[in-house]
Every structure is written in C-alpha cells, then in structure tokens.
C-alpha cells in the first residue's frame, strides 16, 4: 500500500521541518510549504492525500487556504493544526470541510492518527 502523502503548511520553518521528519519516520510521505501561496502551488504537482494546515500565517491565512484547497480538489483531506485557534475558527474550518482540528503543540501520536483516519476517510 502506498504511504499516505501529506502536505504540511506552516510558516514556522523549524517546526514544520521537524514535524515532517517525525512523520516520515512513522511511514508517511511528506512535503512542506511555508505559506498559503506556496501550498497551493505544491498541491498541483504533489497531489497529497492530506494537508496539515496552520491557520495564522502571513499573507493568505489558513482558512482561505482551506477554502481554495477544497475548491481545487474536494477529495483532499485537511487537518488544521494551530496554536491560535478559537472555537469560532474550529466551526468555520469544519464548515469548510476540514477533517480534523488539533491544537499546537499536539502529541505526535495524535497527529499521525488524525492524518491516517482522515486519509482512510474515517474522519468524515
């Protein structure tokens, strides 16, 4: 079985690189983007199964990225991973089709489970 392909989108470079490496060690295939525009560009070529997305980023914010990702490919699962989120953000993200909503910093086991569940369609 092909490993789940995950696009990680976060402007905190050190955070997203360390997390990508940890997910790779756990058998996931990863690619990183450091802002919304870059994420949408990578999305076309990389064709991920899931996107792990921060909400508060300079430029295009996470909710806008979510909206556009779902417009480009509604099949892609999006999991929000944020340290800034409010209940209102969580509700909007869910309405826009997010499959999961995690608070930063989250346990690596929880992140992997949430991504795997999203990829296998259980989170819907």
């Amino acid at each position: 079985m092909e490993p789940c392909k995950v696009l990680l989108v976060d402007d905190e470079v050190e955070f997203v690189l360390a997390l990508a490496e940890r997910l790779t060690i756990r058998g996931l295939h990863t690619q990183v983007a450091h802002n919304g525009e870059q994420a949408l560009f990578v999305l076309q070529d990389y064709a991920p199964d899931a996107v792990l997305l921060d909400l508060k980023m300079p430029g295009m914010d996470g909710l806008e990225v979510l909206r556009r990702v779902k417009k480009i490919n509604p099949q892609v699962k999006v999991v929000i991973l944020t340290g800034h989120g409010s209940e209102q953000d969580a509700e909007i993200a869910q309405r826009l089709g997010a499959s999961g909503y995690l608070q930063k910093p989250a346990d690596i086991g929880v992140i992997v489970d949430t991504i795997k569940r999203a990829c296998s369609g259980f989170a819907d």
Binding site: A18, G83, P105
Partner: peptide
C-alpha cells in the same frame, strides 16, 4: 500565542 509556537518547535525538535 508566540510562546506556544516556540514551545511547539522545542517539542517537535526534542521529539525528533
């Protein structure tokens, strides 16, 4: 929020 971002970096780096 910024402090939590820093803690998240430390957490993932030590986790790695």
């Amino acid at each position: 929020h910024e402090i939590k971002n820093i803690l998240a970096i430390i957490k993932e780096s030590s986790g790695l």
